[in-house]
Design a protein around this nucleic acid. Structure first.
Lengths: 332, 332
DNA sequence: TTGTATGCGTTATCAT
DNA sequence: ATGATAACGCATACAA
């Protein structure tokens, strides 16, 4: 591998000169610059990033921890983080925590080993005190979800309010027996969505019936299974709010498989507005999260922490959007 | 940051001893080991990965280049790569090439700067000679697609044969006017699928009609738009093979929007068998690729190259599966 | 079994 | 404007 000393030798200067010319566009006298740049070109020299990082103590890399790679919302966010990071000369390392025994360990290893300058965690699932401890020592930003009254910088929508809004929409157009299908994972965000669902019911004078709340996998398979369980229970219901679009899709498929028409016989709503939401049959009524903005703001927050501009920061709440399509039946 | 010399001091030994005890489970006499390990624990010492990598010249990290993060097949493969990599003590860096101006640059930078030990490229789009040059110098494995008669190690299915098989199925059950909607990207894999479609037609004695072949975005939006264009053309057709499930979903949505029943009035097939394929209405007839196996084999190939066990390797062709559901209409 | 000393490829400090 | 050299934190060849 060609290194800086090779370039220096060819150009007839010291390594220090090469280094400075490469990192400072206005350094050295023109003649020297030319020589060095020519040598760099001829030898196809590329600085060894490892050595540079060891020396400068910064990697210009941030890590994004995602609970899984297959969530449309998540990779919209990731993509946006990447865009913003690139604009600031940073690289993004994507860590897929799915199936990872201990996510927390993953966090700590990478940053403690100085391989990254900061962490963005998409819907962190680690215990609160642990996250706070990490945030105490290293730049950390939470996206999509975070603990309440917690001073770790975060960007998210108000999941509770959004869930309340979509449930209230169902009530407004006449539904009374509304079920809720959610993920059995203990992500706070699902708790918040459940809580918003419950609040909407109470506000509407409808008692919350635990027998109408189902928990399972947060995937299409999960939605399918939970809906079948709900149907098998014999309980009556005329609408279902799902804690995610994938769950809603599975649930609708289960309904259709029994010949139950959506939304005529049962309205269904989702959450997240994933790519397929408008193309599904029926198109999904759902909540749209401002994925792009979330990613961008998350990176910018992290960036300012890395640059030591600020350590803590109040959480940023972004506006969500209630997207009404056909699956809730309001158009009929 | 606590470093190895801190541990050495606390344990009353040299840094060399600490280093050796940490990297060799059976080194040193028990007493020394205990002392050192205790010191490590007390100081919460974590080796600086950068320094170690600089010293050993290996990062134990591989980079996976993906054309985009939003493809279900791709992240199944990525996830499988991660599993296998973890089993070998390797980390995976996921590089999203979407919107990247020059993917090739990405490849080269990361590896030339010694930040990774090898590259896995999912459906590489770089020019053939460039890929061969990279493969000549660094460990590189191609997944999902590769050039023909090219000795860069690769793992894929025979896209042409698979596309031919699904088209022939359509012909077998009575379709004659079969259109094809594909991506306008120049990925070889789309060319192969198109070529398989054409071969099936010719073998079936059906002339290939260029007016029935549409190219656009490889997304749901793209499928929707191309199908509308096809419908607007006034051309008659009774079936459409799509080069991807997402395209198929958009296409079916466009058909339904015009009140055309699928598959009764027009059969549609996809490719890849993504998560929603069985849940869509109608469920998609498609080609399933062995994503898990592909990822696993890809990593293992790369691993043996990194370990210098072998440089080149013949391409591995894995079996695909024709998954027949309702969208092609055979069941009716 | 363990310690000493060197080098991995940079960048930054201090001279000149 | 530029050169000599130390230091980043670790692993290893060589000594002891």
């Amino acid at each position: 591998m060609t290194k800086i000393s090779d370039v220096a030798k060819l150009a007839g200067v010291s390594t220090a000169t090469v280094s400075r010319i490469l990192s400072n566009p206005s350094w050295g006298k023109p003649e020297t610059r030319e020589n060095v740049l020519a040598a760099v070109k001829e030898l196809r020299y590329k600085p060894n990033a490892l050595a540079r990082q060891l020396r400068t103590q910064e990697t210009h890399t941030v890590i994004v921890i995602t609970p899984n790679l297959s969530n449309d919302l998540f990779h919209k966010i990731i993509h946006s983080i990447e865009q913003e990071a690139a604009a600031h000369g940073y690289h993004v390392l994507v860590a897929d925590a799915e199936g990872q025994p201990s996510v927390e360990e993953y966090y700590l290893n990478a940053i403690q080993q100085r391989q990254v300058d900061g962490i963005i965690s998409i819907s962190a699932s680690a215990a609160r005190h642990l996250l706070e401890k990490i945030a105490d020592h290293y730049p950390l930003v939470l996206v999509v979800q975070s603990y309440e009254e917690c001073n770790i910088p975060s960007v998210k929508i108000d999941n509770r309010a959004a869930s309340e809004a979509i449930t209230k929409h169902l009530i407004r157009i006449g539904h009374r027996k509304i079920a809720h299908i959610t993920s059995s994972s203990d992500l706070l965000l699902y708790q918040e969505r459940l809580s918003g669902y419950e609040k909407a019911l109470r506000d509407g004078g409808i008692p919350v019936d635990p027998d109408l709340i189902y928990r399972g996998k947060g995937s299409m398979d999960g939605g399918f299974e939970q809906m079948n369980a709900l149907l098998a229970s014999g309980k009556k219901f005329d609408a279902v709010t799902c804690a995610g679009d994938t769950i809603a899709i599975g649930a609708i498929a289960a309904l259709k498989a029994r010949g139950i028409r959506v939304p005529q016989e049962c309205a269904v709503t989702g959450f997240d507005d994933i790519e397929i939401a408008p193309y599904f049959d029926p198109p999904l009524t759902t909540i749209r999260q401002p994925a792009e903005q979330m990613g961008q703001i998350a990176f910018l927050k992290l960036f300012s922490m890395i640059k030591k501009e600020k350590k803590y920061d109040s959480p940023t709440y972004l506006p969500y959007e209630l997207v009404i399509r056909k699956s809730c039946g309001h158009l009929l």
